[in-house]
Design a protein around this nucleic acid. Structure first.
Lengths: 284, 284
DNA sequence: CGCAAGTTTGACGCTGCTCAATCACTGTGG
DNA sequence: CCACAGTGATTGAGCAGCGTCAAACTTGCG
């Protein structure tokens, strides 16, 4: 459901999409939930201007630290996780372009988990103070952030269901379905249905509460049953129906439904000069 | 027990603490995160005025339905859960007095899970339209709702860690620690450290992804090791240190820290000076 | 080229599941 | 007042899914 805030800018003079200055994945993401007006978009551009290129295995946020900054994934792939004292690790979820990592510090600036990167990534560095003041000044942005947090929670619930109730084979099937859906909505799935996933089997194991050895055996089973092929950081889905069936997958919880944005629109969901934005009109 | 006085009649007697006539668990809860002014509180009272007494096993929200109302637990005990097609059930969490069930419908009014009651409960019935408009009109309330959603997500992450990484004995230990902490912050733990928990072993099993049989055996082990006693819907902690040690429990994720409110203050909105100024400065 | 990280394989064993029966408690109706 | 049913708790025997340990192999990278 989208809130119908009236855009404050003047009405569009033509249905033609305005020229775009800067593609901004945060606008693309938040715009899925709330129709942002031109000033909202400008503010988002402003606070996400500071960019940094970071590398695989870099840590964005360390557990127990009190960061002054919040990060946004612009390009790349992040993980949320926590270690137990005995070395076991639970992965809580993955961050894709447009994902904020994370709004959580608004509650308490002490982190209850770490965030790392799984590939070379471009991140926007947002000062917490900036984000806070923008959220106070621009209710639509606060609402959109609330929405993303709610969707994250839905993903987390699904993950809990997965880890708690399904067997190893089903867990993996569900995992691959989820990433297919999420990456597809970002336009990151190739025409042949394959997608790149920069994880190791260790991450898969730590996501589902399994061991690497067992994950490996299940992957072999997927290959053997001609359902799916995982190799060199790429997932190739051979039989999507069978995969969905094994997983019992229902993408509803991802809340990607009607709002799948065309790749070029998503990329250009950014700051446009005088009139209503592409994403706002797509959502009206 | 909870009567519906209008709080507007009395003026604040001091510049810091604005007395609230009516004990309202939603105010108590939201007030932990954001300093609500007297008008915020009045609005909350207004939208939570419609009350209903409901029974154990009643369903508040059914998966796939499109509810027009959001419920708030005033007194009692709720569960969030979802069934899989083969009858397995995952419990996502429990709702205690003050908990909203749930803000989730703000994103999409279709529910991805059900909510039921585990004891006779008093619930406030809030129309989604009311909640939405109050959140738009009163940014502090929206912020506070965002906070509660973030805390819920933190609880969910901890639960995932629990289910994914710990063995059955540790899972249960952690569960009992969490409820000790949450109920303690509501003043629901007796002096001897015991608390009432209206669940069956079936619920415990469906919470941790175990079978009833195994849960039962673990409970016997807790008894045998003189750590904890579970009988007739009551948890009696015999050795709190040992329990915490087994669980590896760190209550940080609950975000109950400084803000633990004295029972009588909780009734009055938790609006004590230091906590209020702390969260107020966060908003400034 | 050589090392480190990740993947794959095999043997073995434990944690937790399945199935199935019995027991305890509570509320119901005759 | 008791028979009865329904729900939950408890027990036992047997077993399998997944973990552990250990080693070999493969890939990527400096």
């Amino acid at each position: 459901m989208l809130l119908d805030y009236a855009p404050l800018g003047k009405a569009p003079t033509s249905p033609v999409i305005e020229p775009v200055i800067q593609p901004n994945p945060m606008i693309a993401k938040l715009g899925k939930y709330v129709a942002l007006d031109i000033d909202d978009q400008a503010e988002i551009c402003r606070i996400t201007r500071r960019r940094r290129i970071m590398h695989s295995n870099d840590t964005l946020v360390r557990e127990d630290s009190k960061p002054q900054n919040i990060f946004l994934i612009v390009r790349g792939f992040g993980v949320r996780f926590r270690f137990l004292s005995d070395g076991r690790r639970q992965i809580f979820g993955y961050l894709l372009p447009g994902d904020l990592c994370d709004a959580h510090y608004v509650v308490s600036n002490e982190c209850d988990h770490s965030v790392g990167l799984l590939s070379e990534s471009e991140v926007a560095v947002i000062s917490t103070a900036d984000l806070m003041s923008v959220m106070v000044a621009r209710p639509r942005i606060e609402r959109a952030v609330l929405m993303t947090v709610l969707v994250d929670a839905a993903i987390l619930r699904e993950c809990l269901l997965n880890v708690g109730q399904r067997d190893a084979f089903q867990k993996l099937a569900h995992f691959f379905c989820e990433f297919h859906a999420r990456l597809d909505s970002l336009g990151e799935v190739s025409a042949d249905g394959s997608y790149s996933l920069p994880l190791t089997q260790i991450e898969l194991a730590d996501t589902m509460g399994l061991t690497v050895v067992h994950v490996n055996r299940m992957l072999q089973r997927f290959r053997h049953e001609a359902i799916l092929n995982w190799s060199r950081r790429r997932v190739e889905i051979l039989d999507h129906d069978k995969l969905r069936h094994v997983a019992g997958f229902n993408p509803r919880y991802l809340h990607l439904q009607g709002v799948k944005v065309e790749p070029q629109l998503a990329a250009y969901g950014g700051h446009s000069a005088p009139a209503a934005s592409a994403s706002a009109s797509a959502l009206a």
